[in-house]
């Protein structure tokens, strides 16, 4: 048991937590954009899977992680484009299409993986980390937080970028209006459909990036169903955060710690089913909701397709 609390172990645990948190963070931030704009994006799990698969394929064949992130983000955006066409442009039911896209991408990526990689199970070399000087020398915390791939820092920076976007920019306000009172936005002369399309595409890009991070940096390989509910966790995070990007970060870290703890327990050979630890973050959040549960401040028009002149 002494090994459990050694410095090395602790920093490895935290390092794992951050690695696990980054995809959740990207998914949560992405989902938040859609939800702000009034689109409940249940297809995000599928977008992450597309990102994970294409991200891996891109990185594997080009040998460049960055190209992998690019193809991953493009893959997520491509799925989002379908979602935007079907749910925003012509207003089909967001839950039907979202779940259908998730099912379809689960199947499609597993299928492609079967024909391409199921015999060899290729792996990517470990991602090279960007070491932040000085800070990374701090014991425990240094190696845990300041030796990650550059994308991880960018994702954290994005939290503050999104905060700025929502509060200070025209686009941010438009997004919010598209979710709260789309008709008012329309009257103000701004295209609701366009605003929501931008939101959904941004969601897909971020989710795809998150998926690519999960496959390329987190795991170093692609396996079917690799996201394992990360997209749905992203939805939970976005809803819990009530529109505030910083809360997505905190939530992602909480879930990241628990995910990392699961692996750490297995490594340490502790005889508790990993399911018990997997339950912890959900238990924590449910208890928080029971104790402090207030009315959710969700956008008024969430999930309702906008049709000009309806009613």
């Amino acid at each position: 048991m002494t090994g459990l609390f050694s410095e090395v172990f602790l920093s490895a645990l935290l390092f794992g937590a951050v690695t696990a948190a980054i995809p959740l963070l990207l998914a949560g931030l992405g989902e938040q954009i859609s939800e702000k704009a009034g689109v409940l994006n249940i297809g995000i799990e599928g977008m992450m899977l597309a990102g994970a698969y294409l991200g891996f394929v891109g990185a594997f064949y080009s040998g460049s992680l960055w190209l992998g992130f690019l193809t991953g983000a493009a893959g997520g955006a491509a799925v989002a484009l379908v979602m935007a066409l079907l749910c925003v442009r012509i207003g089909l039911n967001q839950i039907v299409i979202g779940i259908a896209l998730t099912l379809g991408l689960e199947g499609l990526t597993a299928l492609l993986h079967h024909f391409q990689f199921s015999r060899s199970y290729p792996r990517l070399p470990a991602a090279d980390a960007t070491v932040i000087p000085l800070l990374s020398d701090i014991p425990v915390i240094g190696p845990a937080f300041f030796k990650h791939h550059l994308i991880a820092y960018l994702a954290v920076a994005l939290v503050f970028g999104m905060g700025y976007l929502y509060r200070r920019t025209q686009l941010g306000l438009n997004l919010q209006a598209a979710g709260d009172k789309p008709a008012a936005l329309d009257v103000a002369g701004i295209d609701v459909i366009r605003t929501r399309t931008i939101a959904v595409l941004a969601t897909g890009t971020l989710a795809g990036l998150g998926g690519a991070y999960l496959a390329n940096v987190g795991a170093g390989l692609f396996i079917p169903f690799i996201t394992n509910g990360a997209g749905f966790l992203g939805i939970v995070l976005a809803m819990l955060a009530r529109g505030r990007p910083v809360w997505v970060l905190f939530g992602a870290l909480l879930f990241g710690v628990c995910l990392s703890l699961t692996t750490a327990m297995q490594v340490a050979g502790i005889n508790i089913p990993t399911d018990v630890i997997q339950m912890l973050p959900f238990l924590a959040v449910m208890i928080m909701l029971v104790l402090f549960g207030r009315r959710a401040s969700l956008p008024a028009a969430l999930g309702i397709p906008y049709e000009r002149g309806a009613r």
Partner: peptide, 9 residues
């Protein structure tokens, strides 16, 4: 899964 998804859409 792919088939079900396409049918639904």
């Amino acid at each position: 899964l792919v088939l079900v998804s396409i049918v639904l859409i």
